[in-house]
């Protein structure tokens, strides 16, 4: 997509700007909303918009993950959590001005930091000079896998992916440790009738 004509590039940038504006609107809506069901729905919409941005950036693998995890499973899990905790956010005790100041200052610093980065999709940027050309030219030949993302993920960076898999595993173990072991705390007379499920 990035190698298209001038009008295509303008159209792509316009799509990205529209999507990012909608994401900003969703984020502001989430911050203002007190009904948590609305917040979860908006965060699902936010994730879908993010996935679309990833498609615009030609990162379809990331887009697929974002759509499935961010918009799909997170929404279901958050609805489950809301069902436990209740659907309305209580009024904040503190005034929002100090947190707002901290967030605005951090955001301004991040924006200032991006000024030092190379221009968007600049082929001369350091990240495109280091190992990326080797992955792109050698990857399909050496691994026999046409999708470079898979070749890098599973083969070149196999150790990283092993670590990621262990992170997912550890997250599951953590959830089981925190929420899964609740039976011993029950009163003895109730334990018998509830074991039948």
């Amino acid at each position: 997509m990035a190698t298209g004509s001038r009008s295509e590039i303008i159209l792509e940038e316009l799509t990205a700007v529209v999507l990012l504006t909608l994401m900003g609107a969703a984020a502001i809506g989430m911050a203002r909303q007190r009904n948590l069901y609305g917040v979860v729905l908006l965060s699902g919409i936010y994730s879908f918009l993010m996935a679309t941005v990833m498609v615009v950036l030609d990162a379809v693998d990331v887009a697929m993950t974002e759509a499935a995890v961010g918009a799909g499973i997170s929404t279901v899990l958050l609805f489950g959590a809301i069902h436990l905790t209740g659907g309305t956010e209580s009024k904040p005790i503190h005034r929002p001005w100090l947190p707002l100041l901290v967030v605005a200052a951090t955001g301004a610093m991040l924006v200032y930091g991006t000024l030092g980065l190379p221009a968007f999709s600049d082929p001369g940027a350091p990240i495109h000079q280091h190992v990326a050309p080797r992955y792109l030219t050698e990857g399909p030949v050496k691994t026999g896998v046409p999708n470079v993302v898979t070749a890098v993920l599973a083969s070149y960076r196999g150790f990283d992916t092993l670590g990621e898999t262990f992170v997912v595993f550890t997250a599951g173990i953590g959830v089981i440790a925190l929420l899964g072991r609740r039976r011993p705390r029950r009163p003895i007379d109730k334990a018998g009738e509830e074991n039948k499920e």
Binding site: I73, V76, L77, G80, A81, L84, K142, T143, G144, V145, T150, A151, A154, S155, G158, T161, L162, T165, V168, F169, A171, G172, V175, I176, L179, G180
Partner: peptide, 30 residues
């Protein structure tokens, strides 16, 4: 090349099994 294919296949299979079951387990617990 066939070694790479075999390695990537089983590694991805391991990722599939762990990710699917962890997601499902978290949902079950919630």
């Amino acid at each position: 090349v066939s070694g790479q294919h075999r390695g990537i296949f089983w590694v991805e299979m391991g990722v599939l099994i762990t990710v699917a079951s962890v997601m499902l387990k978290i949902f079950y617990v919630f």
